[in-house]
Each structure stands twice: as structure tokens, then as C-alpha cells.
């Protein structure tokens, strides 16, 4: 008799500590990254690290601006490509498509989301890169290898597409049917209803979904690394190479051990990424929290 009560208490305690442990992991990771990157602050100021564009590790110059710019640009391109497509897809599936269509499209989206990112990378190298270097770039610039910011943006855009679609679908489905009926019974078409009532009703939710997708896109490494060109320069156009932060870390982690400040610099890059992704996640949570409060 006593034993089952004891077991219950132990089980509760164990589960609580496991949960606490995984939460603690975030803190530990952040602290670890900070401690590892601390040596770089002795040599350079934070402003210099963030806003200098000179990256010469052998001479001890660590300007992260090219990487930060590369990360931001690639993410922006990806979002600009993915958001309209996924929004229209989600609207089609929720508002227009017949249930049969939905039944077949939803699993397909799940498969897209589950593909390993290296496959997207290969696809980008085989299809997008030649497309840009042979067909698109010659129309705008003299020469491009195809390994460009645009290629990275497109591949990344395609990668966040399934995530965005499924988030958008969830959000749009949450609009009560009565709202649609009210609009339609005034003589509005489905498109008018979608545009002025449905989308309008869930704008904050959609924004939160985009922020969440951005934080996913910021951290994507392999696929982007394979097509982005990896040149530590501030990208000048869509057709120049770029070098986002995750690619920097992944490319150099093995060879950095000889230079202590190089290691610190890479850890600092990881710290930037960590903080930014954390922030974006937080922002999306706050928006969603507000939305839920409004609904209630």
C-alpha cells in the first residue's frame, strides 16, 4: 500500500528533474558558448566584431559583418519567396480545396518537411545552381558561378515552405465558420471573404508563424552551405556568393584548433546565432500569447 504512494512520488520527482534538466540545457548551452567565446572580447570590442567586414583569421582580424549580412539576406530571400507561396497554398487548401484534395496534399507536405536537409542541398546544387549560372545570371551580370545568395535563398525558401504551410493551415482553420458564413451571406465571394475577413482575423497568428519560420531558417546549415558559395565578403547582389553564420561554423570547426582566438571567434558566431534564434522564438511566443488572450 505504502509502496504505490512512494512509487508515485518517485515517478513525479524523476519526471520533474528530467524536465528541469532539459530546460537547464538551454541555459548551460548559452553559458558555455559565452565562456568559450570570452577570449575574443579581450582582443576585440563587441562593436568591432559585429560591424567590421574584415575577416582574416590568420592575422587575427575577426569582422563578422559579412556573415551577419549573409545570414540576414539569405533568410530574407527565403521568407520573401516562401511566405506568399505558402500563404496561398494554405488558403487554397483550407478555403477552396475539396476534402479529397486535402487528404492527399497533407501527407505530401509532411514528407517534404521530413526530408533531410542534405537532400535539399543536393537538389539545389544539381538544379538551382546550374539554373542560375547558365540561365538567370547571364541576363543580369557578366559572370556567376551559380553558387550564390539567390540559390541559398531559394533552397532555404523551399525548405521552410512545408513548415509555413502547415502552420498557416492550422491558423486559418482556427477561424470560426460563422465569420465566413456572415461574409458570404452578404454576397461576398470566397476570395473577398478570405482576404478581408479570414486573413484579417488571424494576422497576428500569421505573423507569429512567419517569425517561427525565420528562426528555423536562421539556423539551417547544410543545405545552405552547399549552395551559398562560402566567400567571406559582404554580398553585393543576389548573384554574389555569401557566407551565413551556420555555414561558417560548420566549415571551419575542424581546422580551428591551432589558433585559440579563432576558436573563440567561432564560438562567438555560435553565440550570436543562439541569441538571435532565442529572441525570435520568444517574439513568436509573445505574439501567440497575445492572440490567445484576445480570443479569450
Amino acid at each position: 500500500m505504502r509502496f504505490r504512494v512512494l512509487k508515485d512520488k518517485v515517478a513525479g520527482g524523476v519526471m520533474f528533474s528530467l524536465t528541469a534538466l532539459s530546460l537547464l540545457l538551454v541555459v548551460v548551452m548559452g553559458a558555455g558558448l559565452y565562456m568559450k567565446s570570452a577570449p575574443i572580447f579581450d582582443e576585440h570590442g563587441l562593436g568591432e566584431l559585429l560591424f567590421s567586414s574584415s575577416w582574416k583569421p590568420m592575422r587575427g582580424e575577426f569582422g563578422f559583418l559579412p556573415f551577419i549580412a549573409g545570414t540576414i539576406w539569405v533568410t530574407v530571400i527565403a521568407v520573401v519567396i516562401a511566405v506568399p507561396i505558402s500563404l496561398l497554398t494554405a488558403v487554397f487548401l483550407v478555403e477552396y480545396a475539396r476534402p479529397v484534395t486535402r487528404k492527399y496534399v497533407f501527407p505530401a507536405l509532411d514528407i517534404l518537411a521530413a526530408l533531410p536537409s542534405v537532400i535539399y542541398g543536393v537538389w539545389g546544387t544539381l538544379l538551382i545552381v546550374p539554373f542560375i549560372s547558365d540561365w538567370l545570371a547571364p541576363r543580369f551580370v557578366d559572370f556567376s558561378t551559380g553558387y550564390t545568395m539567390l540559390a541559398a535563398g531559394i533552397v532555404l525558401g523551399v525548405m521552410i515552405l512545408p513548415l509555413l504551410v502547415s502552420l498557416f493551415i492550422e491558423i486559418i482553420t482556427s477561424v470560426p465558420g460563422e465569420l465566413r458564413e456572415a461574409s458570404i451571406s452578404l454576397g461576398a465571394t470566397r476570395w473577398q471573404t478570405t482576404k478581408s475577413v479570414v486573413i484579417r482575423d488571424v494576422r497576428p497568428g500569421l505573423a507569429a508563424a512567419v517569425v517561427l519560420a525565420v528562426s528555423r531558417a536562421l539556423g539551417e546549415t547544410i543545405a545552405v552551405l552547399m549552395v551559398c558559395g562560402n566567400l567571406p565578403e559582404i554580398p553585393r547582389s543576389l548573384f554574389s556568393a555569401c557566407y551565413p553564420i551556420p555555414a561558417l561554423i560548420a566549415n571551419n570547426y575542424g581546422e580551428m584548433l591551432s589558433l585559440p582566438s579563432y576558436e573563440a571567434a567561432l564560438m562567438f558566431a555560435a553565440l550570436i546565432l543562439f541569441v538571435v534564434v532565442l529572441l525570435f522564438n520568444l517574439i513568436s511566443r509573445v505574439i501567440l500569447y497575445r492572440v490567445e488572450k484576445n480570443v479569450a
Binding site: 465569420l179 461574409s183 461576398a188 484579417r200
Partner: peptide
């Protein structure tokens, strides 16, 4: 003109609610 069981104002201002049908 349909009036439903539960009042269902559209997610916009009072003015826009009444004007909605005309705008549509």
C-alpha cells in the same frame, strides 16, 4: 439578409462592419 443565432461581427470596426457588404 441572414441573421445568425450567435451575433458574428467581422474582425473590423463598427463602421467597416456595416460598410463591408457595400464595399464587397
Amino acid at each position: 439578409g441572414l441573421i445568425s443565432q450567435k451575433p458574428c461581427p467581422l474582425p473590423m470596426s463598427i463602421f467597416d462592419n456595416v460598410a463591408y457588404g457595400c464595399r464587397v
